[in-house]
Design a binder for these strands. Structure first.
Lengths: 336, 336
DNA sequence: TGGGATTGTCGAAGCGATTCGATACCTATT
DNA sequence: AATAGGTATCGAATCGCTTCGACAATCCCA
């Protein structure tokens, strides 16, 4: 293994100089920098991560907690994760993957052992047991999602309340008077996941504001459940002319089910999805949608964490503004 | 921060004794062990990961490379990942997540900097550029999937050749004479992913052996493409009575499409899926399937890596035997 | 009962980096 | 000409743990 002293000898300087070339924390002459870098290249030197962590009190690793609960849409979670890894690498950090099989002791362990410099936590519940742990950590953290009580913590997410509103606003603008929300699976509501409730709140509030009739239904994420839900909606709400779907796996099945039931989309029934753009774009009928900006959220989460690691102040809450893209699944309400 | 010397003082022993209690590498009396453990508890001591790595030349971290290429089924990949993390934790290791945005330099970096003790690589292609890198690493690795040239490397995967055969054997046993394989998306074949070809090989070989007519078609992983594929099969192969689907996202759509085309499953048309058991089980019509044992593969991969880290010899190739579970989507071929 | 094993513990030497003065030289200012 | 300030570099201490050799105490068997 080639170490810093080897590089130093090869370049004819002291180890500390090599270190300073690498970290840039003190100025080193052009000439010396060149020699040192050449030696590093020539010898194929890589600083020992452990030694570095020990001496600098920084591991350059962040922990990412991905609890894989039922009812979540794995591809979106993975988009976050990839975005976190990519952004972290740009900031010269690596990512440790925690899946929380061991409960939240994991978090404490990786931080207390200085394995990780900070933590990003996904799929935060309104009453999340991890919150206490995060508060008691002496390292920064960023939550993706908002717990009910977030004092002292840094959170980021899409503004799902606004997302719900934007969908209804769009539909109201097209003349619709009666809207339905097909939401996340029941278990997601049961464990009190914030985004499900927030979308619902925004949806209901906007409907009231526009004086529209509205109805909300959680829905299992299977085609069969989607079919059934569509049947139920048509039966119970005959004057329904628009639905918002906030449940990735069944956006396509819902549209298909309406079509099979004889409803033309968008002529007879308008559909707005809350889902990643890719999904909405490459549906057989491209869907009007509010994007879930997984990539941006992941990136911003890392940036917030890095800012904290550098001692900068960061906003406690970051709510990303929803963006609705009209596509082919919504149209003005048909005249009677 | 509480360190080993603090624990040592508190327990009235030397630091080395504390270390030996923790590692068990030398025998320590019951009594002393108890005192040390009590002190560790009392002070909330956690060994500093970096210091430990530096002194012991082991980081207790393994790297997991998950390239998220198009055409792969993310939930299955995630199952692997979770299984790897869980198993790694049982062996007292953490998992570093690499997504290979930076190419395979990442691999070299985490290993050369002693950040990771070993590597697990997923989604291996038949001609994978990472192979050379892995060979040149002076740390062990495990590949999930088989490259064409695997000398000196440790690989593990489901035996997809056997999986393809087992499907056909099952159908042959039921009297079917003409079978189709609906495979992975074209891009998966194009980049030469081993499992796609191996399934195909096994499928064709078994069909020949049973003297059956067979046909193979890659298929885009969308419901629309599934529909189209089903139309094509019915048109071009009128005497087809059975299909094998090796493409998770469209197993259900394929069945639905056949039904919509007026074929009863399994009476008119038998379907065998190659997919995770959960997917086959909770389809509207439970499907006869060969399981993709993601969890077992992940676990075994970690075990193989650990064995190597401990200097034990491991088999170069581990092929998991496929297991076919008959469910409601296959039945004897209808008499004419 | 003596001598070789075995068991339990300690002290000190690393592991490979970072970082904090200290130093030496140069330039600019008074 | 003397002082101040800045730049470039070095040396030594330090980070927290593991591990090796040494040593004392106990054990066992001849």
């Amino acid at each position: 293994m080639v170490k810093i002293t080897d590089v130093a000898r090869h370049a004819g300087v002291s180890p500390s100089t090599v270190s300073y070339v690498l970290s840039g924390k003190r100025s080193i002459s052009e000439e010396t920098q060149r020699r040192v870098r050449d030696s590093i290249q020539a010898l194929g030197y890589r600083p020992h991560a452990g030694a570095r962590a020990l001496a600098s009190n920084r591991s350059n690793v962040i922990a990412l907690v991905i609890p894989l609960r039922s009812g979540i849409h794995v591809p979106v979670v993975m988009q976050f994760a990839v975005s976190v890894v990519t952004t972290a690498r740009e900031c010269d950090h690596d990512v440790l993957l925690l899946t929380q099989q061991e409960g939240d002791e994991d978090l404490r362990r990786v931080v207390d052992s200085s394995l990780a410099d900070g933590v990003i936590v996904m799929d935060v519940q309104m009453h999340d047991p991890r919150i206490r742990v995060l508060r008691s950590l002496d390292r920064p953290s960023v939550l993706i999602g908002f717990p009910t009580e977030a004092t002292g913590l840094t959170c980021i997410d899409l503004d799902f309340t606004a997302a719900g509103e934007v969908c209804v606003d769009h539909l109201a603008g097209l003349g619709h008077r009666c809207v339905g929300l097909i939401g996340s699976p029941p278990e997601v509501y049961e464990r009190e996941t914030g985004f499900a409730y927030r979308t619902e709140d925004g949806f209901e509030a906007a409907a009231r504001r526009h004086d529209m009739t509205s109805t909300v239904h959680p829905c299992e994420a299977t085609p069969a459940a989607a079919e059934e839900m569509v049947g139920l909606l048509l039966r119970e709400h005959p004057d329904l002319t628009a639905v918002v779907v906030h449940n990735e796996p069944i956006v396509e099945p819902v549209v298909a089910a309406f079509q099979r039931a004889g409803r033309r989309v968008p002529e007879d029934l308008a559909v707005v999805a809350i889902c990643p753009d890719e999904l909405a774009e490459r549906a057989p009928l491209p869907l009007t949608s509010v994007a879930i900006p997984a990539e941006e959220v992941g990136q911003r989460a890392v940036e917030l964490l890095m800012a904290q690691l550098e001692g900068r102040d960061v906003p406690a809450a970051t709510l990303l503004r929803p963006r609705l893209t009209p596509r082919s699944s919504t149209a003005p309400r048909a005249e009677e």
